[in-house]
């Protein structure tokens, strides 16, 4: 240290000064960088926001067209017009029956299946899990034509329960995978105590494991329900009679059955149909502790 500093004190002083300058420069560079980054991000956010803004504005606008405008006149008329049995209540109810039934079927089966997969070793386990994971990747759209043909042959076409069975089954692989991952996080110690007390494995599952993993179950349930609520092509292919269609398909009527499109009503209906999704998603990310956790969970 002394060797370095004593022969060239001047250099040392310069170095200190330049270091301070550099720090100041770095700090101001950081500040400009942050401003630039914030501006770019906000610009992108505006691009993402424009279509969403149209949805809200048009739903409140008495004379809505395709542009984003301040509602004039500002009115709830669009909502009054669509809030009737044919346009909103029945499709929403159909959606609830369809997606609720399929979600219940899917989650119950997934929990049952996940339990042995999480708790026991077997030589069938790994191939089974790999098959499940493989199935989650398959494009379900491609299966719809043979499913349609199959449903016509066995008379399940245009039936609510047939569609529920298919929707529930197609969501199963991912639900099993997700549930198993959540269940792996529940420690075994408590179950062992229950086993020692002579509880059967189903009792243990119900009394010990499920209460401990309710956040996981909530996430699986909401995620499954949301993916079905937004699903268009399954009910579109498998249900035919207009009074059975859920909201995801009945929304097409805003275009086809009337000559001119009532954009305000379309927007109002879209908002009503999307509201549960946004609420449930918010609940789910709260349970998961931040939306980034879902990305991690989905990554597998």
């Amino acid at each position: 240290m002394a060797v370095v500093s004593s022969p060239k004190p001047r250099v040392h002083g310069e170095r200190v000064r330049s270091a301070r300058e550099r720090r100041v420069r770095t700090r101001s560079r950081r500040r400009t960088e942050r401003i630039v980054v914030n501006t770019i991000l906000l610009l992108i956010a505006v691009l993402f926001l424009v279509p969403l803004a149209w949805l809200v504005m048009a739903s409140l606008n008495g004379t809505a067209d395709l542009r984003v405008r301040v509602p004039h006149p500002m009115t709830l008329d669009n909502f009054h017009r669509v809030l009737n049995a044919d346009m909103t209540y029945r499709p929403i109810l159909n959606g609830l029956i369809l997606c609720g039934g399929a979600t219940a079927l899917c989650v119950v089966c997934a929990v049952l299946a996940a339990y042995p997969l999480s708790r026991y070793e077997s030589r069938y386990k790994r191939p089974f899990l790999l098959t499940i994971l493989f199935t989650t990747g398959l494009p379900i759209t491609a299966v719809m034509v043979p499913v349609y043909a199959m449903f016509v042959q066995v008379n399940l076409i245009d039936t609510m329960y047939g569609t529920i069975l298919f929707l529930g089954s197609s969501a199963l692989p991912f639900a099993i995978w997700l549930t198993k991952n959540f269940m792996d996080g529940v420690p075994l110690v408590l179950e062992e105590a229950a086993w020692t007390d002579g509880a059967s494995s189903m009792q243990t599952l119900r009394r010990v494991v499920l209460p401990l993993m309710w956040p996981g179950i909530t996430v699986v349930t909401i995620f499954t329900f949301l993916s079905m609520w937004g699903n268009f092509f399954v009910p579109f292919f498998l249900l035919l009679s207009p009074d059975q269609l859920p909201a995801s398909v009945s929304i097409l009527n805003f275009f086809s059955s009337r000559g001119t499109v009532e954009y305000g009503q379309l927007a109002a209906f879209s908002l009503l149909y999307s509201a549960p999704v946004v609420v449930l998603y918010a609940v789910m990310s709260k349970v998961l502790g931040g939306s980034s956790a879902l990305g991690g969970a989905l990554k597998g």
């Binding site: 119950v108 997934a110 049952l112 299946a113 042995p116 077997s122 499913v147 197609s170 199963l172």
Partner: peptide, 15 residues
């Protein structure tokens, strides 16, 4: 393995 059976049946039938 019994609890896996309902899922397996559904997936065999519909997938």
């Amino acid at each position: 393995g019994l609890p896996v059976v309902p899922s397996v049946i559904l997936m065999l039938l519909f997938l």
